[in-house]
Amino acid sequence: MIKIEKLKFGYSKDRLLFDNLDLSLSGGCIYGLLGRNGTGKTSLLKVIMGMCFPKSGVCKVFGLPSEKRLPSMLCEMMFVPEEIFTPSLRIAEYESSYAGFYPRFDHKLFKTLLKEFELNEADKLKSLSLGERKKALLAFAMAANTKILIMDEPTNGLDIPSKSQFRQMIASLAMENRCIIVSTHQAQDIEKLIDSVIILDNGDILIQSDMEQIVRKLAFQISPEKPSGALYSEEKMGGVYSVSKNDDEGACGEFHLDLLFNATMANKTAMKELFNHKKS
């Protein structure tokens, strides 16, 4: 569905954010895109959406270069950015203005989602709080039923019940032919949701792996003391949480996304080698 090959991208000629980045994303998967601030998560999403153009290399969406921004391509893509813009319209007017551009827009689902988020169609978008506006846009994005749904920090600004509702809704949207990308630095928000993890660092992909592979290759443990040979450990309530190489390759321990992220940041080379990523 999305194929990035040898992508070079940067906002200035001297400093490239991505240098020969390769990435392939397929349908039927919820991808969690993780990375520290400024590692290029939003830029990568913008390149996929065709809002930023590669310096070289290609980013193909449905087999076509994303920078072409063809309407046939955009009507199957929905992007909810971190910093949202909402026109001065009521929610119902927003739906009536923009739903027509998306051929499979589900008006019934939109109404249901609004109800679940406790929003009213008559509400003026500008008079809503940031969290409420984000919920309205998330409801619209989900109801659009596009093949690609990209969300940049979707849980920012959402309260605790809304985060939980958001997770349930995303889980219910996962379909065989749909590719959902959730970029976040709040790992715990999407931990139970994602099928595959992409960890970005300095414009490079450290890990791109599905959950099955991760729990086969890594052991997540909680023990009274730091286990010997642990790749990473941190003391928390209830013991020492650690990540080690899983030598017998059987599923081991409960997966913790934030632990995986911290372990990756602490052992970049080792983790990259472990997940056999081609680029160095």
């Binding site: 913008k46 959406m49 065709g50 809002m51 921004r69 063809l70 309407p71 046939s72 391509m73 955009l74 009507c75 893509m77 929905m78 992007f79 950015p81 910093e83 949202i84 813009f85 923009y98 551009f101 998306y102």
Partner: peptide
């Protein structure tokens, strides 16, 4: 004017 406005406009499926 604002980046988020540009992003919104560019994401609408029109030619």
């Amino acid at each position: 004017t604002k980046r988020e406005m540009t992003m919104f406009s560019l994401s609408i499926p029109t030619a």
